[in-house]
Amino acid sequence: MMGGSHAATGALAGVAATGLLAPLFGVPAGPVELTAAAGIGAGAALLPDLDHPNSTATRSQGPATGLVSRGARALSAAVYRRTRTRGDRVSDGEHRYLLHTPLFALAVGAAVGVVCSLWWQALAVVLWLTLSLALRGLGQCLPRGRNRRELGSWPTVSLLAGVATALLVGWGGVATGGYVGAVLAMGMIVHSLGDALTRTAVPLAWPVRIRGQRWRMVGMPHGLRFSTGSPVELVIRWGCLLGTPALGAALLV
């Protein structure tokens, strides 16, 4: 799994999205907003892997997220069966299918935006969930040891995410539901783009047909793809980790 790398790319995407979208939603791009966006983006970048039973997102909240994962896999499989063409390869339609499409990410982002605009409690829950996922994902970037184990512990992560949520909501760091939904969608899309760089690729164009296949796996040319855990992945991970604060500082100037 690329949990650490997905979280790193999502953090960078969240900060970049704030720089682009904050004026549209009337949100100031200050230090608090950029910090919140990095957390939302990093956590959202783990959400597509709810379609895998052993992913960080699936295991993050025990039986609760396990149940969500089962529902997500069932939905993905059902949509795959209903929309596949004769040219599509035979598959169970679960991992790296519906949840890994940009269209699904945009739909989730829009739904989150509407719900969070209507109820501030929903905004707090989304923020807590994404921050808890962000801590887990970014914790995987740390060297193996006590600190990494602590950031993989449910009580520790849940408590830290709860404190961070209370502070960010109290300081007004997440002003509008639409803004949160947009950043969340961006994080999910970045996850899919990252997977498109790997050997397996993902159905980025769904539901558009490519050569008769609605679920055609789209990615980089085969010679440029890499395996998970390879040096290329580590370069991307650390480039994003270092680039996130650098971009945030540039936006504050």
Rank of each mutant, 00 (worst) to 15 (best):
A64H: 00
P245L: 14
R209C: 12
G178K: 09
L34S: 04
S69P: 10
L123F: 02
A16D: 00
V108P: 12
R81N: 03
D49M: 03
R84H: 07
F226K: 05
R149N: 11
Y97F: 15
G194Q: 04
L197P: 00
G243H: 03
P31C: 06
A175N: 01
T65H: 07
V15C: 05
D195K: 10
T176Q: 13
L160R: 10
L234C: 04
W206K: 12
P28Y: 01
A250S: 14
G10F: 09
S55M: 03
R144I: 06
T18N: 12
P48D: 05
S69F: 15
A161E: 03
L46H: 00
A7S: 09
E94I: 06
T56D: 06
G113H: 10
S69E: 10
V183K: 12
T198W: 06
W119A: 14
Q140K: 11
R199C: 01
P207D: 15
F226T: 06
A111I: 05
Y97W: 15
V126I: 12
P31G: 08
L131F: 13
H52P: 07
P231E: 09
S55L: 03
L234R: 13
V190I: 14
A22N: 11
V114K: 04
L118Y: 07
P143K: 06
P48M: 03
G30A: 11
G178L: 08
R216E: 14
G145L: 05
A78F: 05
V15L: 02
T85E: 05
L46A: 00
L234E: 11
L127E: 05
L138D: 00
R144Q: 02
E233L: 08
A11C: 02
S5I: 01
L98M: 11
G4F: 01
G187D: 06
G30W: 09
G172D: 02
T101N: 12
G43C: 08
I40E: 09
N54K: 15
P155K: 06
T9R: 06
A185W: 04
H52Q: 11
P48K: 02
V180R: 04
C240S: 13
D51K: 12
R146A: 15
Q140D: 13
L75E: 01
S153I: 04
G10I: 04
A201R: 14
G173E: 07
M220S: 13
A110R: 10
L47I: 13
R96I: 09
V32K: 06
P207M: 15
A44Y: 05
V202H: 07
R136I: 12
E33D: 04
C240I: 02
L160I: 14
V90H: 10
L160W: 13
R84I: 04
W154G: 09
C141A: 07
S55N: 07
T130W: 03
L133G: 08
S55T: 02
L34I: 05
G243R: 01
G43R: 01
T198K: 13
V253C: 13
G177V: 03
T85R: 12
V157L: 00
A7F: 04
W206S: 14
A78E: 05
S132C: 09
V79N: 07
A72L: 09
G243S: 07
G3R: 00
V115Y: 04
T156D: 01
G26V: 13
G173M: 08
I40S: 08
R136V: 03
